[in-house]
């Protein structure tokens, strides 16, 4: 399935197998997919279908057993860990289901933590970070420790962190999985606004009610993407 603009992520015959108790389980079977710049793509499917595996591969957190992954024009399938880490540091923003924030640090500090392993100008990071915190509507709590925020606010902090360095792509793994309907709506609105600003978004969710936010939907079933 192909989009109109230049592809940011391309999967070409990607396979992923795991060894479990001396047996090999094939989670992904020859996945071909493409995400173009500026798209909002949602990957849905039942539990255990391989959605999160696809997202981990896109985030360069894992390597495929077979096939090729092209990220921003570069074959990253067999890239060394140092190069992959560098790409994760600058080009990929991630939002997790359970937020993954540093509980004792403030909102701003969590956002600035985005640049912890990136060779980025600290002044740029700080100004952009503050801008994103405002964008997420968290200006009033920017100095509060994140453990004191509501879950919806925490997820918005995570989003601000993920985009603080203007990534090539924003990947979200069940970002509304732990949120109530109102918070989920707020969070999805944030994603939509970011996408409208040109940020490519790929989201994994099993909540089909969120499909209206996406421009394109991919269904993952039995290790195959369609």
């Amino acid at each position: 399935m192909k989009g109109a603009a230049h592809p940011v992520i391309q999967f070409q015959g990607v396979r992923k197998c795991f060894c479990v108790a001396n047996e090999t389980a094939e989670i992904l079977k020859s996945v071909d997919a493409e995400v173009c710049a500026g798209e909002f793509v949602m990957i849905t499917g039942p539990s255990g279908s391989g959605k999160s595996t696809i997202l981990n591969l896109m985030a360069l957190l894992d390597t495929p057993t077979g096939g090729r992954i092209i990220f921003d024009g570069q074959d990253v399938s067999s890239l060394g860990e140092e190069r992959r880490s560098a790409l994760r540091a600058r080009a990929i923003g991630m939002v997790f289901q359970k937020f993954c924030l540093l509980p004792h640090r403030s909102v701003l500090e969590n956002v600035f933590f985005r640049a912890r392993y990136a060779a980025a100008d600290s002044g740029d990071v700080r100004s952009r970070g503050r801008e994103m915190v405002r964008e997420m509507g968290l200006e009033g709590v920017m100095h509060h420790p994140v453990r004191l925020l509501s879950q919806g606010e925490m997820q918005r902090v995570a989003i601000a962190r993920a985009v603080a360095l203007e990534p090539v792509v924003l990947l979200a793994d069940e970002p509304t999985g732990n949120l109530d309907a109102a918070s989920a709506a707020l969070v999805m609105d944030c994603f939509r606004r970011l996408n409208q600003r040109g940020i490519t978004v790929v989201m994994v969710t099993h909540n089909t009610e969120l499909l209206s936010f996406a421009g394109r939907r991919l269904v993952c079933r039995n290790g195959v993407l369609s």
């Binding site: 957190l61 880490s85 790409l87 997790f96 985005r114 912890r116 392993y117 990136a118």
Partner: peptide
């Protein structure tokens, strides 16, 4: 583990 995963996701190397 979650913190380690977060750091790796943010670009940390195993040596970090």
């Amino acid at each position: 583990m979650a913190e380690i995963g977060l750091r790796r996701a943010l670009g940390a190397m195993p040596a970090d």
